[in-house]
Structures are given as structure tokens and as C-alpha cells.
Design a protein around this nucleic acid. Structure first.
Lengths: 333, 333
DNA sequence: CTGAAAGCGCTAACAG
DNA sequence: CTGTTAGCGCTTTCAG
């Protein structure tokens, strides 16, 4: 647990000045190749690792992007992060990753932590942060929001065209012959409102407004379970359920399974996200795909543009697709 | 995008020196309560956020723990992280979270990044890092490894007693009447070897050594799928499969389902981790529970002890339990 | 209780 | 090509 070597040590060992050592390690063409090699060798031998704090402080930039992921438990976010990380690596940027864990107030705290790091930019993935708060952050540091549309000159957004996604889902069910369709929504979750409105307007488009039910949920399996419970308690039971996301859909399947209602013979279920779980043939959930990694990588590109100086808002809408599996079928006759 | 306020600004606004402002914000009793309030007010008004880099550099400590998670896609790690984060919050510590994403060489790079942050300690969750490399890290900064046993004076370990866990699984299957049991292992994954050896020795204990098969896998669904393919190709087919983890088990269920083999009537399947997926009643996977959050919080406690000065190794073995659901039953007669 | 001064490890002009 | 000189924003003795 000895003191870590500093640039000073490297410089001494290589017989050069600190400044030259610094340049040498960055492969600056300003320093002779031979010297460069000597410096690098000295650094390796000492096990030198630059002190980020010192680097950041002196250079006024961190080369780091802050990423706030809503929830580590939802595989969807892991996939979005894959896209983010890949893009960041491509651009030789570092990142610091945070999650809010549970509560809402934690989101601001997590963001403050990123700000304290003096990150060069921030990616907010599906946070519930109030629009005003997000705009405030964006005024301090370039910010892009994933999964939610925010009208603000300062905040860029990258999200799936949920209106289209919901239309896809509804059209599919209607084509199969369904009319009474229930939506279990994402409650206070980020983007939940958009998806709920998408569902309602899609049902209107096909002239089935009065047959639509919406029950309040959350983006979790538990919410899906409880939502299904409520949906199938009434007397005018729907023949299909459109869940706010795959997790919710799993909860619905769970409830239906334990109640002895067969899917898709008696009830059709459709999810949103096309996560790994939905792909399992034992689950085989019909779902709306949002190409999650693309969401992430696009967010990074948009952010870099903003860091590069663009000042107008950029709102990137990605088109979803329907992935038809085996939880949807014609309703019972 | 204006310059962020510094301590200097806060001090000026509060009409005190920088030093006092610094102390005041830390609620040091060395500064009068009234002054403290004035300082705090000034800071709030300016939206002051301390510059971490400067703080770290000046104080020689970061109050930050580095966490390297093997894989964001496996919900097991999200649960372990819950425990880690909760414990860290309890102790008022910050963290920086990393994942290696894919390749092995990335693990060292991720660790170097944590080291560059000058974190006060490191938690390595299920990394494949060679023992020597881990020990090297530990000599630089207090380190605890989760999910793997490493014999080194410098590295502390927190893991589940996999020998016991495997015995639990095997005993359960044997009690049901199974004899030909296959294990699809975790291949090169962290802790895979321990689990494989645990399976083999458990089978030996019950005198079923020759009935045991082991096929090489990986801790993924895909590996489970392929593993099942190989297992059920031969002529002496097992009646039960013990998977290295729940993801592998899901892959197995997937393959069996698509082949028309019924679970548990024809084949029993048992997983490891008791992740959220296994709990779904549509899946209802029998599995070995490792109380993942406890694994995480224990790791933090052990790490803090080490940071506090303990020098001997601490090897914390947590006892697993069997969670019996509906993928295991007596073999067909 | 408060302030002055030194310095953390590094980068970035600016000279030689 | 190489070295000198200032800081970056903060904490931390050490004096008042």
C-alpha cells in the first residue's frame, strides 16, 4: 500500500522534465521517438497510472460522460447501456455510471454526483426527473435524455416513436380480431404517459375507443401481476392485454398462468421492449422492439454533437417494429 | 454553460475566507453556527457543487469505492449491486461503477480506470481476472472479490458455499429418485470451476459418480440451450439437469420446450441464483438461492474492515438454500 | 473562532 | 525538440 508513483517519478526515472513526460505519455509528436520510448518504459516499470483528479483539474476537461440508468434490474437498460458504452469507447471517452435506485429524489442526487465529477456530458436514461430539473441540468452541461420527449431548447432527446409502437401493437391485435383490449400502463415511470396516450389514440384510430381499458401500473413484474388481477376481475373482460413493457407483460403472464387462463387461446398478451426474456421460447412473448442498443449509441452521437457546439434541440425518433411470437392469437369465439 | 462557481465564490459571497467556507460546508464544529448557515446559504444560492477532482487531489482520499460488475445483463449482479449500494450509502461512501463488457482484457482496463480514480477500495464482482492480477490490485488498494475464492493474504473474498449449494441441488434430485444427472457448467466464468467440482463431489457423496455428466458451457442462456442440445443427443440421456446458473437453466428450458420434452414430467431442471426470472410462476424454476444482496453488503463490510487496517485475509462463506418450485419432480418410471 | 499559506499531481502556454 | 513557470480548486496545517 505504498504511495503511487507520480509523473514526477516517471520523469526522474526517464531523466526528463515533468512536462516532457506528460507529453511523451500522450504520444505527442513534439517529443522525439526515442525519448518517448524511454518515458513509456519508465512509466511501465513503475506501474504508473495518471491521477485522474489531477489531470481533470489541470486540463479543465474530464473526457468523461456521466450515465444515469434508471434501473439495473430491467434488462432493457442493460441493452441501452451496451449501445452507449460501445459508442463511448469508439470515441475514446470514459464514463461514470450511476443508478438512482428506488426513489425519485435520488435522481437529483445522482446527477449532482455526476456534476461533481465535472463530466463533459450527461446521458439520462429513462429518468423521471421533472422536465424543469432536466433543463436546469442541461444548462450546466450538455445533456441528452433517452426514452422521453422533453420540449426544451437545451435538452436533446432520443426515443422510440411510441405512438407508432402502440399503433403496431393495437393493429396487430385488431387484425387478429380483438376488440376489448386493456393496457396496463407504466404509471409514474418515464415515458409511461406517452405509451398510454399512444394506446388510447391507436384505439381511437381503429374506432375502438369505448372498448379500451387502461389500468394504472408501473414498469415492474409486480405491477403487471396486480394489473392483470384488476383487469380480469370485472365482468367485461378484455380478450387482449397490451403491457407497458416486457416486465409488466411477464407479470401478466404470471397472473394468468396461476389463474388457469390460457395464453394465447383465451387471452392474448403483448409486451414492449423485446428484451432477452421475451425471446425465450418458453415465454415467446409478442412484443414491440425498440432496438435498444441503437437508442444508446444514437444518444451518444447526439450528445457529442451538442458538446461540439450545436445549440438547437435535436429530437431523434426511432421507429419500432413488431416482433410476433406466441402470446397473441385470435380471440376465443 | 457558464463557469461553475468555486469555493472562492462561495467564500466571497459569505464574506469569509476559503478555508472557513470549506470547513463550514463540512459542518465542522470549528466554525460558528451562524457563519455556517451563512456559508451554506451562499453555496445554495450559487448552486455550488464541490469539484471532486480538486477535493480528491487536496485531501488524498476520494471517499469512493470502485465496483466492477461482471455483466449488466444478468439480474443476479443487479441484486448483488443493490446490496453493495445500500451498504455504501449507509457508510456515506460514493462509488463508481464499471463493467468489463465481453472480453477478458477489458477487466484489467476497467480496473485501471478505477485505480486512476484513486478509489479507496475495490469490489470485484465475479470477474475472471487471474488470481495473480487480483492480488496485484489488492497490493495497491484494498480489494474484495465476490463470488470467487482466491487464496491470497491480500485479497478478501465473499462468496456462497458452492460445495454446499451443489450438494443441496444433488440431494434434492436424488431424493426425488434421479440418478443420471447432467451439469452444464459455467465454462470460463468466475466461480464456474467451484460449482463444477461441487457437483462432482456431491455426486460422489451419493455414490453416483458414474452417472454424472458434465458439459462445458458459459453463464448465458445461449450456453444453456447448446448444452442441452449436446446433453440430450447421446443415448444415455439424463433425467435431470443441474445448470450453472438461472440463465443457463432458462436456456435449457428453452431447448427442452422447443424439442417437446416436458419439464418436469420427463426431465427435471434446477438452476442457481434464484433470480427474478426463476420466481415467475410461468417459469417456476427450482434453484439454489445465494441471497445476492447480502453477498454485496457483506463484501462492503469486509472491505471497510480491510481499509480500516486488518491485514489477514478474510474469507466469508455464505450458506445457500434450496428453493423448490415446479421444474423438478420424480423421473419418469 | 477565523485567516494565510503551502501544496496535491498534472497540464499548458511560453521560452530556450 | 526540451524545460520553466504558473496555476486548476480544494484541504490542511499553523498562526492569530
Amino acid at each position: 500500500m505504498t504511495r503511487r508513483p507520480t509523473l514526477e517519478d516517471v520523469a526522474a526515472k526517464a531523466g526528463v522534465s515533468r512536462a516532457l513526460a506528460s507529453l511523451g505519455l500522450k504520444d505527442s509528436s513534439r517529443v522525439a521517438a526515442a525519448t518517448r520510448r524511454r518515458i513509456r518504459a519508465a512509466a511501465d516499470e513503475l506501474g504508473y497510472l495518471p491521477n485522474l483528479a489531477a489531470q481533470n483539474l489541470a486540463s479543465h476537461r474530464t473526457g468523461t460522460i456521466g450515465v444515469l440508468l434508471n434501473d439495473l434490474h430491467n434488462p432493457f437498460f442493460a441493452e441501452v447501456f451496451d449501445g452507449i458504452a460501445a459508442a463511448l469507447e469508439k470515441h475514446d471517452l470514459k464514463w461514470v455510471l450511476t443508478t438512482a435506485r428506488d426513489v425519485r429524489s435520488n435522481e437529483q442526487r445522482s446527477i449532482d454526483a455526476l456534476l461533481a465529477h465535472r463530466v463533459d456530458g450527461i446521458v439520462l436514461v429513462s429518468t423521471r426527473l421533472p422536465a424543469a430539473a432536466a433543463a436546469a441540468v442541461a444548462k450546466t452541461v450538455p445533456t441528452v435524455v433517452v426514452g422521453r420527449a422533453l420540449r426544451s431548447r437545451f435538452v436533446d432527446c432520443v426515443l422510440t416513436d411510441d405512438a407508432a409502437g402502440c399503433q403496431l401493437a393495437v393493429d396487430h391485435l385488431v387484425a387478429l380480431g380483438h376488440e376489448r383490449i386493456a393496457h396496463i400502463d407504466g404509471g409514474p415511470g418515464a415515458g409511461a404517459a406517452a405509451r398510454r396516450r399512444g394506446f388510447e389514440s391507436a384505439m381511437r384510430h381503429v374506432g375502438l375507443s369505448e372498448r379500451a381499458t387502461v389500468v394504472a401500473g408501473d414498469f415492474t413484474e409486480a405491477a403487471g401481476f396486480e394489473g392483470a388481477e384488476r383487469v380480469f376481475r370485472g365482468d367485461t373482460q378484455p380478450t387482449a392485454v397490451f403491457a407497458a413493457n416486457d416486465l409488466v407483460a411477464m407479470g401478466v403472464l404470471d397472473k394468468l398462468g396461476s389463474t388457469g387462463i390460457r395464453v394465447p387461446e383465451q387471452v392474448s398478451v403483448i409486451g414492449y421492449d423485446n428484451t432477452a426474456i421475451s425471446r425465450l421460447t418458453t415465454v415467446a412473448l409478442t412484443t414491440v422492439d425498440q432496438s435498444s442498443p441503437l437508442l444508446g449509441s444514437t444518444a451518444v452521437e447526439v450528445l457529442l454533437e451538442r458538446i461540439g457546439g450545436r445549440s438547437g434541440q435535436r429530437m431523434e425518433l426511432l421507429q419500432p417494429t413488431l416482433v410476433q411470437r406466441r402470446t397473441t392469437a385470435p380471440p376465443p369465439t
